[in-house]
Design a protein around this nucleic acid. Structure first.
Ligand SMILES: [Mn+2]
Ligand SMILES: [Mn+2]
Ligand SMILES: [Zn+2]
Ligand SMILES: [Zn+2]
Lengths: 176, 176
DNA sequence: CTATCAATGAAATTCATTTTCATTAAAGGG
DNA sequence: CCCTTTAATGAAAATGAATTTCATTGATAG
C-alpha cells in the first residue's frame, strides 16, 4: 500500500458520477425541521427550512456551494453567506457532519445515527460509507497508550473503485 | 467516543507547545540535499537547499508559512512562492508528506521511512505519531470488501493530551 | 563562455470561507 | 394585532491559503 497522505485528488467539479447515496428517508415534514432549529435556540426562517430540506432530501456529501445552488432554485433571493453560516451552526450543534478530503471544499451530510467513515475513489470521486468496530476499538487503544482522551477521529480511505479499475483496464488494452 | 469529524481545532497560531519532535538526525550535508534535488530532475539552487535543510533540521509538521519564515531568516530575498512551489514538488515526488487537519493550513514533514499516522491534542496542538499494523490491515480489508484498490489513507485521531487533561482538572478545582 | 531553458520573486489571482453592516423580519408580550 | 427587541439576512468587502503570471535571473550542458 502507498504511504502518501493525500493523493492530490481531482476536483470532482461536476457531481457527474458522485451519485452514491441519494437520501430517500421518510419525507420529514416542515414541522420536524422547525424542531431542529428550535433545539438550537434559533429563529425559524424560510431560508433555514430550505437548507435543512436540501440537506435532508438531496444527495449526501454536498458542498456549501452545492447547497446554495439547490436552495437558490427554490428562492433566488437567498444569500450564500446564509448557507455557509447555517451549515456552520448545524455542524457546531452536530446536526450535520463536515467531511473534508485534502484541501478540497468541505462537504456536509446530516449526522448519521450510527457513525461511519468514508472510502473515496480518487478517479471519479464516488464515496462509499463504512463502519468498522475493530478499527474504532483500536483507535481507542492507541489513544489510551499515549494517555490521550480521544474526542474524535478522521479516517478516510482513498482508492480506485471497481468501475474505474475496469475503465482503466479497457483503456490500457485499447492503447495496445 | 464522539461521532464528530473535525472538532473545529484551535488555530495553533504560535508554535507554543507544539514541540513534539525536533529532528536531530545525522546532519546530512549539502551534497545529500543536492542528490535529492537531482533525483527530481531539477536544478540545484540555494533556495531549494535552504528549504530542504529547514525541513530536515527543524521541527516536524511545519506549515509552508513556517518554512518561509525559517528560510527567510537565512535569506531575506527568498519568495514565498518558491517555498510553496518547492513544497508541492517535494510532495509530488514523495520526498515530503503533506498532513492536513480539518481546514487548517497544510503541514509538511520529510517522508518517514516507515509510515505513521497522527494523534493530535485539540487543546494545545501537540502531535504524536503512531503506527498500528492492525489498523492498516483492517483498512485493506474494508477496501477490498468494496472492491476498491486502496491507494492511500488519512487517519487522524483527536483528543486531549495528558498535560491538557491535568491543566483542565486544575482549572476546574480552582473554579470551585 | 555562452546559450538555453528552468527557477525565481513580486504581484496579481483564485477560491473557499468569513466578516461587516445596513436592512429586514421572527417572536414574545402587550 | 401591534410594538419592541433582537436575531437573521444578503450584498459586498475582507480574509487567508495557495496558485499563477510574467519579467528577470541564474544553473548547467556543451
Ligand atoms: Mn458519509
Ligand atoms: Mn508525522
Ligand atoms: Zn471511481
Ligand atoms: Zn494538549
Amino acid at each position: 500500500m502507498e504511504l502518501t497522505k493525500i493523493p492530490t485528488l481531482p476536483k470532482f467539479t461536476g457531481g457527474e458520477s458522485r451519485e452514491e447515496r441519494t437520501l430517500s428517508r421518510e419525507p420529514l415534514d416542515k414541522s420536524a425541521f422547525k424542531q431542529v432549529i428550535r433545539k438550537m435556540n434559533l429563529k425559524v426562517t424560510d431560508q433555514r427550512l430550505l437548507i435543512l430540506s436540501a440537506l435532508h432530501e438531496g444527495r449526501t456529501h454536498v458542498t456549501a456551494q452545492e447547497v446554495y445552488e439547490i436552495v437558490s432554485a427554490k428562492d433566488p433571493e437567498i444569500g450564500f453567506a446564509t448557507v455557509y453560516r447555517f451549515l456552520r451552526t448545524l455542524t457546531e450543534h452536530h446536526f450535520v457532519t463536515e467531511v473534508r478530503m485534502g484541501g478540497l471544499p468541505a462537504r456536509y451530510e446530516m449526522t448519521p445515527q450510527s457513525h461511519h467513515d468514508h472510502l473515496t475513489c480518487v478517479s471519479c470521486g464516488k464515496i462509499c460509507e463504512f463502519e468498522n468496530h475493530e478499527i474504532e476499538a483500536l483507535q481507542e487503544k492507541v489513544a489510551s497508550q499515549f494517555g490521550f482522551e480521544l474526542t474524535s477521529h478522521v479516517l478516510e480511505l482513498y482508492g480506485v473503485c471497481p468501475d474505474c479499475q475496469k475503465r482503466k483496464k479497457a483503456k490500457a488494452s485499447f492503447g495496445n
